[in-house]
Simulated assay, not measured.
Amino acid sequence: MTKLETLDNLVKICVDSAERYRRAAADVGKEKLVQFFTQQEAARRRDADELNLERKRLGGEGEKVGKESGSVGGFIDRTAMDLSVVMSKGDTGVVEWCREDATDVIAAYEKALRDVDGTTRSTLERQLAENRASLAALEKVLQPYGHPRS
């Protein structure tokens, strides 16, 4: 994969993740969870914006980063999350969906690091560290609301 393709993919992943957090904030009932998910949404959107700047720096065109962008798979996953809430998995189910998303995002960043170097690599390493910290924070948030369902 070229650097630009790698960045394109990560932009979509970040937008999907941001949208998942936005939906999660709307689907939970506890204010502490709403705040956490809203913060995570903003962080993922910042990541997508930063990746787009890196894309432009490398000579690519900027990607559209909005609620309507992202991947088809991300849209399907968010719809499934909404249905899960409707089927009453509640706050714990939403937190678990977001935990799984965070794990998938981290894996995507780890894979992407194989295709980049220089400034791009530094950006991805920093964002990966932030995503790992978010996952750790999510694990802490999960504790008072129950643990993942088996």
Rank of each mutant, 00 (worst) to 15 (best):
C14Y: 01
R22Y: 03
W97G: 00
K67M: 04
A136E: 15
S71W: 00
K12M: 11
K140F: 08
S71H: 01
T119V: 14
K140G: 10
K56Q: 10
E110K: 15
R149W: 06
T79D: 14
E139S: 07
G29L: 05
L53D: 09
E130F: 01
S69T: 15
E5D: 13
V28C: 04
D91F: 00
D47T: 07
L83D: 07
V11F: 01
A129F: 03
K3V: 15
V86L: 14
L33S: 07
L33G: 07
L138Q: 07
Q40N: 06
R23E: 13
F37V: 02
G118C: 06
R23M: 12
A26N: 11
S17K: 10
D115G: 09
S69K: 11
I106H: 02
E50M: 06
S69G: 03
A136D: 14
R23C: 05
L142T: 09
S88Q: 14
S122Y: 07
S71G: 08
V141A: 10
R46Q: 09
E68F: 08
K3C: 11
E50F: 01
D49Q: 08
K32Q: 14
D82K: 15
A25K: 04
E19S: 14
R149C: 02
G62E: 11
D47I: 03
D16K: 10
G59Y: 04
G73Y: 05
D104N: 09
R99E: 15
K3D: 11
T123Q: 09
S88K: 15
K12D: 12
E61R: 05
R45S: 02
R57Q: 12
E110W: 00
S71D: 00
T79E: 15
F36M: 09
V86F: 08
P148L: 08
L113F: 12
L138Y: 03
K111Q: 14
K32V: 14
A133G: 12
N9F: 14
A133M: 12
R114K: 15
V86D: 13
Y109G: 01
D16H: 13
E41C: 06
A24E: 08
R20Q: 14
E139G: 01
Q40E: 03
D115T: 11
L58W: 03
T119Q: 15
G118Y: 05
L10W: 00
R55Y: 00
A133N: 14
D101G: 00
A26E: 15
L53Y: 07
L113T: 07
E139C: 03
T92V: 10
N131G: 06
S84D: 13
E54L: 10
L53K: 08
L142H: 13
E31F: 15
V65F: 01
V141C: 07
E110A: 05
Y145I: 05
K64Q: 06
G93R: 03
C98Y: 03
F37W: 05
G90A: 09
E96W: 00
G90L: 12
T6M: 07
L128T: 05
G60L: 02
M87C: 07
Q35P: 00
L142W: 11
L58T: 03
G74M: 06
R55F: 01
W97Q: 05
